[in-house]
Structures are given as C-alpha cells and as structure tokens.
C-alpha cells in the first residue's frame, strides 16, 4: 500500500512538471531539498521507465537552464532612448517612388564653430534642407538638375520629402545661409535613387543574356557608374573671389 501511495505522489509530481511547475516549487511542497527531490524523482522514473511520456517530460524540465531571477537585472532592461549620437550626418532613405526620408544630426562641436563664425545663436540661424536631383551628374554643389529647398526648425532632425520624381537620383544638404543669402552646407547626405514607376521600353537598353554568376561584360559596362556626390574640382573653378585673391586675404572691391 505504502508503495502504491508513493507511486501516486510521484506520478502527480511528473504531471505537474509537465504542466510547467518548477522542481523548486514541488520540492518545497513535499518538504524536500532539491537534491532529495531529484534523487527520489530519478528513482521513481527508473521504476516507470516503461512509461516514456513521463520520462520525456521530466527530461525536458531538467533542460530548463536558469531560474528566472538572474535576469532581473535592470541593466538588461533599459528602455531609455536617444535621438542624438554626437555625430555629423544627414541620411536619405527611400520610402516610395516619390518620397524620401531624411534624418540628420549636427555635433555640438560643429554647432559651436558655426555659431561663432556666423556670430549668431544656433536658434537664430536660418536652416534649410536642400534636395538636389543629381541624376547622371558629377555633382559639384551647383550643377543639380533641380533643387528643392525646405526651411527647417533649428532643432528639427528629420523630414519627409514628397512629390519627387520616380527613377531619379537625389542628394541632400542641410545647411544655413550667409548674410548675403548664399547657402552654406553643413551636412551632406548619401545619394539615393527613387524607384522607377514606368516600365523601361524594350528598345531603351540592349537585351542581353548571361549565365549564372557571370554576367556578360557588355552589360556590366552598360550599368551606370554611381554618381559620386563629391566634387574633386579645386576651388579655383567655382569661386569669383579667386581672381581678387592675393594669397592671404581678399582684396576688397573699391566701393567696399
């Protein structure tokens, strides 16, 4: 009889383990230490080894690696969030055929230099996001097909640019203007391409076949070279001040 009762108790224990109870809980209920509990559980399972289901459940429970408490460390569950990462960047992302997303950040250090130079508080300076269509252009800062300009708040850090054209390459600057109204770029973005909307007519590009992992060279050369956003032209090309430059400072116009 005693044996039978013992058997029922352990059978129930196994069932409870299957249902997700922990060994620690059950050991406590039975007034056993965990070591005793495990020993007697193993003995029981040896007796009933003909019953694989129970054995599997216990084996599975034994695999539970940790008590949950060790994970109760606040440093694992930090939910703070930062929008500022102390870096200078302007990033463009493509949302759809006519919409881009821009986000940006200016380092405090750069802000300070700009404020000093323009002799103005950051929040008093005018700021703009300029989006250039640079499709097939070696962009030098001035030769975009088109420029969209948006005034932004000094503390703004992202912007959706709508109503752009599909199948075009875009680049953006975020910057301010000089007293005379000329744009001064503070940040420059990557180049992105809006997806094409229309099908490309068959006659616009040569039809060409290749085999797997080795596309033909003809096609490769037809692939447009990525537009480099950065000009390597030297300053003499674009600056009116260079003619009046005497080496260290500017010779100002007579009427100045």
């Amino acid at each position: 009889m005693v044996v039978l009762k013992e058997f029922d108790i352990w059978r129930e224990v196994v069932l409870k383990l299957e249902q997700g109870a922990t060994q620690a809980e059950l050991a406590k209920q039975l007034g056993l230490t965990r070591g005793q509990f495990r020993y007697r559980l193993r003995k029981f399972l040896e007796q009933v080894s003909a019953e694989p289901e129970a054995a599997a459940a216990v084996e599975a429970v034994e695999m539970v690696p940790e008590p949950t408490e060790i994970f109760h460390d606040p440093a694992l569950w930090d939910e703070s969030w930062s929008r500022k990462w102390n870096r200078n960047r302007l990033v463009l992302m493509v949302k759809d055929t006519s919409t881009l997303f821009a986000y940006w950040e200016v380092q405090e250090q750069r802000k300070a230099i700009i404020c000093e130079h323009f002799e103005s508080d950051w929040n008093e300076l005018p700021f703009y996001l300029q989006v250039y269509d640079v499709t097939d252009v070696w962009f030098d800062g001035y030769n975009a097909h088109s420029v969209h300009r948006f005034r932004t708040h000094p503390e703004a850090d992202h912007w959706y640019i709508h109503s752009l054209s599909p199948g075009r390459k875009y680049l953006a600057d975020w910057g301010t203007t000089s007293l005379s109204g000329q744009f001064f770029a503070i940040l420059r973005s990557n180049v992105v391409e809006t997806p094409r909307l229309e099908q490309v007519p068959q006659n616009q590009a040569p039809i060409c076949f290749g085999s797997l992992h080795s596309a033909p060279t003809a096609t490769r050369s037809a692939f447009p070279q990525p537009t480099t956003p950065f000009s390597v032209q030297f300053i003499t090309d674009k600056h009116s001040w260079i003619e009046s430059f005497d080496g260290y400072t500017l010779k100002e116009k007579e009427n100045d």
Binding site: I113, D140, G141, G175, F184, R188, S231, S240, L250
Partner: peptide, 18 residues
C-alpha cells in the same frame, strides 16, 4: 575636400575648410 555650397565667399569657404 571642401564641401560646397560654401556660402560663396572666401571667409565662409574658410569655415567649411576648417
């Protein structure tokens, strides 16, 4: 490389250079 547009005047170009 000095980013352009640079404000169109030498003094601002110098800022960009820096």
């Amino acid at each position: 490389h000095v980013l352009k547009p640079d404000g169109g005047e030498f003094i601002h170009w110098v800022l960009q250079l820096n």
